[in-house]
């Protein structure tokens, strides 16, 4: 019996690890694409249009709110870039804080604390009350993004673990 528990725990840890690795690879690929778009544009490669267009689905890409690299604007605005870099930082820190043996969501107060600064700033800019500098948007996005992998990895891993449990049951 103890062997079974140990074996299932080992499987559990491995599955969480697999989800973690895929998330890490995904966010690295995602951020690489953000930097790749202006580089490809500087080389006049047509692929840059596909990357810019893909990111236009989730970002306004206003020139005044984007950072510039290789002489061209990045594929997302400074706030979105901050969120994605924060997500990467959170993913890197995930095993140090949570490990792979536990699946638990952060307290919802953590999420609200991380959301308040970016929320106030976004609303202020949206209603033209103030205009935040790009670096500050990046930092606020980073603060929000750093908590997100703790939700994402937990949710996806839990889904696949439950899926496997139900399949075994059947």
């Amino acid at each position: 019996m103890s062997y079974e528990i140990r074996d299932s725990f080992w499987t559990f840890k491995n599955k969480v690890k697999i989800i973690y690795i895929f998330t890490l690879l995904g966010i690295v690929f995602w951020i690489a694409a953000i930097f790749l778009a202006p580089y490809l544009k500087s080389l006049s490669s047509p692929i840059n249009k596909i990357i810019y267009y893909s990111f236009s689905k989730i970002c306004h890409q206003a020139e005044s709110r984007c950072f510039y690299i290789f002489g061209n604007q990045m594929a997302v605005c400074s706030r979105c870039l901050g969120i994605y870099i924060g997500f990467l930082a959170g993913t890197v820190y995930y095993p140090l804080i949570r490990g792979f043996g536990i699946l638990s969501l952060p307290k919802h107060k953590t999420f609200f604390l991380a959301t308040v600064p970016i929320g106030i700033d976004t609303l202020g800019n949206f209603f033209f009350l103030w205009n935040t500098a790009g670096w500050l948007r990046l930092i606020l996005g980073f603060i929000w993004g750093i908590v997100l992998p703790f939700y994402f990895i937990t949710g996806i891993a839990d889904f696949f673990l439950n899926l496997n449990f139900h399949n075994k049951k059947q």
């Binding site: 596909i50 689905k57 969501l105 952060p106």
Partner: peptide, 27 residues
Amino acid sequence: MILLGLVISVVIFSALGALGGVIGISI
């Protein structure tokens, strides 16, 4: 590009929706 955009939207929105769903569970 518009049709490609739909496919890309489905993939990206699914990931973001999943994130929102898990945040919703914690709330």
